[in-house]
């Protein structure tokens, strides 16, 4: 499976705006958002803002970096 990331600005209603659309083999599967300074120790981590299909649901982890997020998404989509 091939994951592509595309930068995007996300209107979360907070300071968390910097995002990535995650495409798996051309299909949009998730939106990640980088946490702003408003989140203290969690700032600059990547939050799983939304998932589609197999990634939809209440499980919304926070990742230290984009590689960790990609590994988690790849595992979930297997």
């Amino acid at each position: 499976m091939n994951l592509d990331l595309k930068p995007v600005r996300v209107a979360t209603g907070s300071g968390d705006e910097e995002g990535r659309l995650i495409f798996a083999d051309g299909y949009l599967v998730a939106v990640l958002v980088q946490l702003s300074d408003e989140h203290g120790a969690e700032a600059r981590k990547w939050f799983f803002e939304a998932g589609f299909g197999q990634l939809a649901g209440p499980d919304q982890p926070t990742f230290a970096d984009l590689d960790e997020a990609k590994a988690w998404i790849t595992r979930r989509l297997r």
């Binding site: 968390d16 408003e38 969690e42």
Partner: peptide
């Protein structure tokens, strides 16, 4: 509340 810590934090700030 069935919310992530990130959402709780955003809502409190708001």
């Amino acid at each position: 509340l069935g919310l992530t810590n990130v959402h709780v934090n955003r809502m409190l700030q708001d």
